[in-house]
Each structure stands twice: as structure tokens, then as C-alpha cells.
């Protein structure tokens, strides 16, 4: 009997030799049913035994908008670039929530699912992908509310909706946000398997990070500030601004910053997949 290992003889081969960059989408596709079952699980279990149930999806952005209105508009009197303040804050919060939820939930992938990962194999990428999809559904619900509020403003508050090609940017920006959230999330989740400090950092870090992202103010307002460099360095800034531009047709979008964000998403995605691949094979021994 020949005792030389030849991968061609087998339908599946496990080898200690590591391939650094492999993205086995075919395998992930085979598990698509599992992705949707995980999404279903997220929704079914999240608001079990609550009175308001899925209404919580709506309450959260609405209340945050009210707080922002009082804090930044009424008290601090920060201008909102000719966009009605309610719509300005609500749009920022909606897209920001989408990013932060994607990021926070994927960043704990390995640790929260260690018990499942330790017992059974399926492509590990299935879990972060299901997280992105369930957040996308949550985002759609919140986006729907935002549209309703826009309609209300158009009907009763003399708000003029601007139609144009810029509306097509909305899905592009959502996709970019998802990619950045997923990529940075899986980078953190790969690192937390060894260095748990990051898990603590993520919780409050993301809250602080919101303040260097133009959620509660516009870039235009800070145009002449000495801090503008740092805010421009943040790849999310142009996306949040871009989202408002796409939705309201007002404000402006810098092509250079936008390209920077796209490049950032691409690089982060590449690094994320690289690290995820490396960690998913060995993390059970360190987690």
C-alpha cells in the first residue's frame, strides 16, 4: 500500500500546511441554509418575552434622535447644512447604527460561539455573514422609518425632496459600510482569541469613535477646524456624509475621500480574511 499523501486521491484533505489566502465561497454557499437559519435565530430569540418585541428596533433610533436634537441642535446650536435637524440626525444615526452593530457583533464571533466551534465544523465565515445579513434587515426597518419621517416632513413641513442619480449611491454606501464593519469586526475577533483586552476596548471604543465620525455634526461645520484632518482620516466620515448626500441631495461629497474609503474597505477586507483564515484553524487551542 502506498503511504504517500496525495490530495488528489481524496474528496477532502486536511493538511497541517497553511494556505494563507483562501476564500472558499463555494463552501460557504453550500451552507447558505445555515446562514439563514442563524439569521432567523437572531430575530426569533432577540425579543422573546418582551412586550414591545420588534418595536425596539424603532424605538432605539427615535430616542437617540430626540436626545441629539435637544443636545446638539437646541443646546449646542450646531448647524445641520440646510437639512431639517430631525432628518439630519436620524439619517446619521441609522447608518452609524448599522456599522456599529455589524462591527460589535462580528468582533465577538469566535468568543461567543466558541462552544459551537469547538464541537462541529462549518465554514466559520458563515457566522459573521449571518450577522451582517440580520443587521441589514434591522437596518432596512430603521431605514423605512427614516423614509416615513421624510414623507412626513415633505407633506407637513414644506421639506422639498430632491430626486436624482445620487439616490443610487445609497446601496453602494450600505455595502461599503457592511464591508468595513465585517472586515474590522473579523480582524478584532481574530485578535481577541489571544488577546482578550480588545474585547473590552470594543465596547467603549466604538462609542468614542462615533464622536470622530460626523454623525452629530457635518464636515462642513468643521471645515476650518484644526481637527478636520483626524476626521478625514476616519474612513467612515465620507460614507456618513455620502449617505446624507445620497438621501437628501444636499451637502457635498469629496471624491478623494470617497475613494479613500473604498480603498480602506478593500484593504481591511483583505487583511480580515487573511487573519480570519489563519485563526479559524487554530483558535480552538487558544480561546
Amino acid at each position: 500500500m502506498n503511504r504517500e499523501f496525495n490530495p488528489a486521491d481524496w474528496t477532502e484533505a486536511i493538511s497541517s500546511k497553511k494556505r494563507t489566502f483562501t476564500l472558499n465561497f463555494a463552501e460557504v454557499w453550500k451552507y447558505k441554509d445555515l446562514i439563514f437559519l442563524f439569521v432567523k435565530r437572531d430575530f426569533a430569540s432577540q425579543f422573546k418575552q418582551t412586550i414591545l418585541g420588534p418595536l425596539w428596533h424603532i424605538i432605539q433610533p427615535v430616542f437617540t434622535t430626540i436626545v441629539f436634537l435637544i443636545l446638539f441642535n437646541r443646546i449646542a446650536k450646531i448647524p445641520t447644512d440646510e437639512i431639517p435637524a430631525t432628518l439630519f440626525y436620524m439619517s446619521g444615526i441609522t447608518i452609524w447604527n448599522y456599522f456599529s452593530a455589524c462591527f460589535i457583533n462580528t468582533s465577538s464571533t469566535f468568543i461567543t460561539n466558541a462552544s459551537i466551534f469547538g464541537k462541529v465544523y462549518f465554514p466559520r465565515l458563515v457566522l459573521p455573514i449571518s450577522v451582517i445579513i440580520s443587521n441589514m434587515i434591522r437596518f432596512s426597518i430603521q431605514f423605512g422609518i427614516l423614509i416615513l419621517v421624510m414623507v412626513y416632513f415633505a407633506l407637513f413641513k414644506n421639506y422639498h425632496v430632491i430626486w436624482g442619480w445620487h439616490l443610487l449611491l445609497i446601496p453602494v454606501i450600505c455595502l461599503l459600510m457592511a464591508i468595513i464593519g465585517l472586515s474590522t469586526g473579523i480582524i478584532i475577533s481574530s485578535l481577541t482569541t489571544k488577546y482578550r483586552d480588545l474585547n473590552v476596548l470594543v465596547g467603549f471604543g466604538i462609542q468614542l469613535f462615533m464622536y470622530i465620525t460626523p454623525v452629530a455634526y457635518s464636515m462642513n461645520y468643521l471645515r476650518n477646524s484644526k481637527y478636520i484632518f483626524w476626521i478625514k482620516l476616519n474612513p467612515l466620515s465620507s460614507l456618513i456624509e455620502g449617505f446624507r448626500y445620497a438621501l437628501f441631495g444636499k451637502g457635498y461629497i469629496e471624491t478623494a475621500s470617497f475613494i479613500y474609503s473604498i480603498c480602506f474597505a478593500a484593504v481591511a477586507f483583505f487583511i480580515g480574511v487573511l487573519m480570519f483564515n489563519k485563526v479559524e484553524k487554530s483558535f480552538m487551542d487558544t480561546v
Binding site: F5, N6, P7, D9, W10, T11, E12, A13, I14, S15, S16, F117, G118, K119, V120, Y121, K281, S282, M284, D285
Partner: peptide, 13 residues
């Protein structure tokens, strides 16, 4: 496939 071998290979049919 829950964890990887440090050395060696495995074939599965």
C-alpha cells in the same frame, strides 16, 4: 476539522 494538526495530513473520502 474543529482544530488543525500541527504536522501531518489526512485524506477523507
Amino acid at each position: 476539522k474543529v482544530t488543525m494538526p500541527t504536522t501531518g495530513d489526512i485524506g477523507i473520502n
